[in-house]
């Protein structure tokens, strides 16, 4: 093996990184994307957007009847009032769990997800088994999450679309009377806002 260079070739781009870089180069040259704007979006999603946003929406809905009513009527505006505006401009619908009905969200088509309030979806949400089974066998799917609901609770499945995305408002845990929004938000898990979990009980938080 001949060594005709005196420096180490340890800068390598894997094929996917190179493809994405090529796309970015072309789209930048065409004036369709601005690398700085791309950087801002990446940073925002990595650091500022995530399920904590959704948890604040849920906690506010639990303590503030006016916000609760607004969220039921027009979730897109109610959520935007907290500055969690989706860059993608999709419509949001809040779905409220009740003691009789538990709600579950899926995107059977691809992986539509309420990014502005939950960040990016977990691996299982994007996986074929979840996408295909959630509608056919929601009770079986919930059991995989160790969530077993009473037979008297019906389960309603909401299939997201590109235009309409759902945020589940879980039931407020018992024993949290008088808690602040901040305390309550800490009980709200990501899964409870997708419907594959419940909000934590106060002692577990």
């Amino acid at each position: 093996m001949s060594h005709d260079h005196d420096h180490h070739h340890d800068n390598e781009l894997d094929p996917m990184a190179a493809r994405v870089r090529a796309l970015e180069t072309i789209l930048t040259e065409k004036g369709l994307v601005d690398p700085e704007a791309i950087g801002v979006i990446v940073e925002t999603y990595e650091t500022k957007i995530g399920p904590r946003n959704g948890a604040k929406v849920v906690a506010k809905a639990w303590v503030d009847p006016e916000f609760n009513a607004w969220l039921r009527r027009d979730a897109t505006s109610a959520i935007a009032s907290l500055s969690y505006t989706g860059r993608q401009g999709e419509h949001m619908q809040a779905v409220f769990n009740t003691p009789d009905t538990h709600n579950l969200v899926v995107c059977t088509l691809c992986s539509c997800y309420p990014w502005s309030v939950l960040g990016l979806p977990p691996v299982w949400y994007k996986s074929p088994p979840y996408r295909s089974r959630a509608v056919i066998d929601p009770r079986g799917v919930l059991a995989e999450f160790d969530l077993v609901l009473p037979d008297t609770t019906s389960i309603r499945v909401w299939d997201s679309t590109a235009e309409l995305r759902y945020l589940i408002i879980p039931l407020r845990p018992e024993g949290t009377e008088g808690w602040s929004e901040e305390q309550l938000a800490a009980l709200v898990t990501r899964d409870s806002m997708i419907g594959t979990g419940l909000a934590c009980a106060p002692e577990a938080a």
């Binding site: 870089r21 601005d34 904590r52 990016l120």
Partner: peptide, 22 residues
Amino acid sequence: GIDAPVFAEPWQAEAFAMVLAL
């Protein structure tokens, strides 16, 4: 969990952001 890293590799983040930008 609630603070999970969202992208496994930087190119995934860039690809995601490009779709939003476009």
